[in-house]
Amino acid sequence: METLIINVLLAMMALAVVILARSRNLFAVVVLGGVYSFLMATVLVALDAVDVAMTEAAVGAGISTVLLLGALHLCKSEEAKPIHRPWLPLAVACGTAAVLAYGTLGLPAFSDPQAPIHTHVAPRYLAEALAATGVPNVVTAVLASYRGFDTLGETTVVFTAGAGVIALLRRRKKNGERRPAETDFPGERQP
């Protein structure tokens, strides 16, 4: 039953991607992107990865969609006709997909309890985390305590992303000059 639900959701995601790739209306593309993220979040719930599902629903479907709508406000809502036929990108994408699919053949079977990832440190985390940290949610214990350095790095990455956006988009009002990057968007209204 669970496999059936996951397969139906994955089929719907594939369908969403096909429509997304064929659509020329950017508003529809943004909304379909949100739909795709919600389906992904549902798949993650079905896989019992509720922490990741929460993040996917909030970031992928929620905030990214709002940000893309905000970006859409600055440009035309119809995608421009491509100048070249997209055969080369298609070939590159298919080649990469084939290599990735070939790579999955070397992986252990899905949810195989004997897979290396499940026999290395995971049993120790599951056995000791509650006693050592007093935190029943092992995900939180691993994230914040066992892998505290990783999470510090991730937080720094998030901070750097924010600082990068500030550095790119902040405008200096004092000298009143328009930087060239500000006119890069087609269809932007001129003052």
Partner: peptide, 12 residues
Amino acid sequence: DFGPGGGFQAGV
């Protein structure tokens, strides 16, 4: 600490 969630999700 007890159920799904944590700092990242709460912040978002």
